[in-house]
């Protein structure tokens, strides 16, 4: 759908992006993570054909993004920039209509009507963007970037600065895009959001540190753990557990977190043992480290490797 091959971009002597290769598939949400200045926005701009790479290439549906083809290929991409960038002197409808005409849509008014309905902003169509809440402005900007029904959608921090309810609405709209089979590249600092919506994640710090599904990244960096919630104080079982050969144990009041890799025990074995020792078990769940831990560890390992 859209791919980058050995994409490098320098600004003078500064390397903003170094040798990035990614491929996004139809109907997937791909999240790009990284600290400030990691090259996320540069990546989006390169993929959207707004700036040219120093080296490497971008392909959209198999067609190379060049100076000659960029204008045509931009028509296939929807780009939500970090700032909504709406024209405050124009109404919401007028903002969208100008963009519908910039995309040379056959029926711009109808396209705008559909977008207003889809994003539930019909009743605010005559308002100026300055009269809207931040969340609504973001929704208008999202409607604008999807007016031409692009199959590829690039979103630069779509929920930054939004209240939880507005962020959730935007997230649902993004999930809706995946449901329609569109390719979504999402740039964000919100790791919880990534965990909720992304099919694959790439961590970037000028160059690609890691990429994969959130689960694969977790498994790559952290041993699988099990969390057992008890009715009684958990510390009384710690010594017995260590006696079975488990070394990685964390006790927190009535919770036991253990890593079973490297031990002969399986989860049912462990539960059976605990019950035999008199434990009253309320819940047994696989424990997943938050994506934030994965992200931080990836960045630290990258830092240590440098």
């Amino acid at each position: 759908m859209i791919s980058a091959s050995h994409l490098t971009r320098r600004f003078g002597t500064r390397v903003a992006l170094d040798d990035l290769s990614i491929e996004l598939k139809s109907g997937e949400i791909f999240a790009l993570l990284g600290p400030n200045g990691a090259g996320k926005t540069t990546t989006l701009r390169l993929l959207a054909g707004l700036i040219a790479p120093t080296s490497g290439s971008v392909q959209v549906n198999g067609e190379a993004m060049t100076a000659a083809s960029a204008s045509k290929l931009r028509a296939r991409i929807g780009f939500l920039t970090e700032a909504p960038g709406l024209w405050d002197s124009l109404t919401v409808r007028e903002n969208l209509e100008i963009y519908a005409r910039l995309y040379e849509l056959a029926a711009p008014r109808r396209a705008v009507d559909e977008a207003l309905a889809l994003f539930d902003i019909r009743d605010r169509a005559r308002d100026r963007p300055s009269e809207l809440s931040k969340g609504l402005r973001q929704r208008v900007a999202l409607a604008r970037s999807l007016l031409h029904k692009p199959r590829i959608v690039l979103l630069d921090e779509p929920t930054a600065g939004l209240d939880p309810e507005s962020a959730r609405e935007v997230r649902e709209l993004v999930l809706g895009l995946r449901g329609e089979g569109r390719t979504v590249l999402l740039c964000t600092h919100n790791l919880d959001e990534v965990d909720r919506v992304a099919d694959r994640v790439a961590v970037l710090r000028t160059r690609l540190i890691a990429a994969g599904t959130p689960q694969a990244l977790r498994e790559r960096l952290f041993a699988p753990r099990i969390l057992i919630r008890l009715r009684q104080e958990a510390s009384r079982f710690e010594a017995s557990l260590r006696g079975t050969g488990i070394t990685d144990i964390t006790i927190d009041q009535r919770q036991i977190s253990v890593a079973l890799n490297g031990t002969p025990l399986s989860t049912p074995d462990l539960v059976r043992q605990l019950v035999q020792w008199g434990a009253e078990i309320e819940a047994v769940v696989p424990e997943e480290p938050p994506l934030e831990d994965v992200y931080v560890r990836l960045l630290h390992s990258e830092g240590a490797g440098q």
């Binding site: 959207a48 707004l50 204008s71 045509k72 931009r74 028509a75 991409i77 780009f79 939500l80 920039t81 700032a83 909504p84 960038g85 963009y99 910039l102 995309y103 040379e104 900007a141 604008r144 970037s145």
Partner: peptide, 8 residues
Amino acid sequence: EPLLATPI
């Protein structure tokens, strides 16, 4: 920036 992201 959003304007430049269109085919213009």
